[in-house]
């Protein structure tokens, strides 16, 4: 019983973290048709900026509770600044080219950003553990859980719902849908596709950075964390279905729970099992579990 609870909670926690990253990836792909490899770098950047801010904050003995707010603020800063810079500075010049070319462009960006992060923040690990303990511990069954982790799960749900509501229920979400469906016709209707792309990419970047910033207190922030995360996020969105927000949620849950089962029962296969799930899903259902069927042009 205890193991079951542990598996479910660990799985949910891992899924929540995965979802935060994956939903940005799938949003950017869904709207812009860019499979953004540099998403992982934005995650790393979010983690680094958050860790740096937290260190500075606590070194100066500023009010501890407010230190928690630093995490989303760092994410927002990274997302808006770096996201806008990448979209305006590079991606803008590649629109209309083949998806594979765009994939390679973001791969190139990823390589550049990986080294930039090392140059700016150095290669030594950064720690930002203080916020993790701030919320205390709760017991579920016989297991102690950090409240921070449970809040993370709640936050992922809130983020997921907000993105979904934004896309499905708001006017700007409908404009986005028009762009997704037919970029050219959207322009002819007066939709400023360029601006929507900037906003979308910045939103995706913010989500990636948020994943990194919220993870920062739980991990040691070192070079290379972006690589791991992007491959995992790929696995999630490919499993769930590229470009689908509910798909990202299902994909995260599947991958998170499968991994938790593996970690608790068969630790040797942990790394392997995630990609095995993805490969199995793709082999049977190339669009992923939840993909929007290829939009029919009417």
């Amino acid at each position: 019983m205890t193991t079951t609870i542990a598996i479910v909670l660990d799985g949910l926690l891992y899924a929540a973290w995965l979802f935060l990253v994956a939903v940005g990836l799938t949003l950017v792909y869904g709207v812009m048709r860019i499979l953004n490899v540099a998403h992982g770098s934005l995650y790393a950047l979010g983690a680094y900026v958050a860790a740096w801010a937290v260190q500075l904050w606590f070194a100066n003995r500023l009010p501890a509770a407010a230190g928690l707010l630093l995490l989303p603020l760092a994410a927002l800063l990274v997302g808006v600044v770096a996201g806008t810079a990448i979209e305006r500075g590079v991606l803008r010049f590649t629109y209309g080219r083949h998806e594979l070319v765009l994939l390679l462009v973001t791969y190139a960006l990823f390589l550049i950003l990986e080294d930039l992060v090392k140059l700016v923040f150095g290669v030594d690990p950064c720690f930002a553990y203080q916020p993790y303990g701030l919320l205390g511990v709760v017991r579920i069954g016989r297991l102690p859980y950090s409240l921070y982790d449970l809040v993370l799960i709640g936050l992922a749900v809130v983020v997921g719902l907000s993105v979904w509501l934004w896309l499905e229920k708001t006017r700007s979400g409908r404009l986005l849908l028009a762009v997704i469906h037919d970029r050219e016709m959207a322009m002819a209707m007066g939709i400023d596709v360029g601006r929507l792309f900037t906003v979308t990419f910045a939103a995706g970047a913010t989500l990636a950075a948020l994943g990194g910033a919220l993870a920062a207190p739980r991990i040691s922030v070192v070079p290379g964390i972006g690589v791991e995360v992007i491959v995992l996020a790929f696995a999630v969105v490919a499993t769930g279905g590229l470009g689908s927000v509910p798909g990202a949620m299902i994909g995260s849950l599947v991958v998170g729970l499968v991994r938790a089962v593996a970690v608790h029962l068969l630790p040797q296969v942990e790394l392997f099992v995630i990609y095995a799930v993805m490969a199995a899903v793709l082999a049977v259902r190339p669009q992923g579990l939840f993909a929007r069927a290829e939009v029919r042009r009417i």
Binding site: V90, V101, Y107, A108, L109, L111, I112
Partner: peptide, 13 residues
Amino acid sequence: QMILGAVMLLVIL
């Protein structure tokens, strides 16, 4: 990696 990435971008663009 930065050099690799920059060269790649230049080639593609």
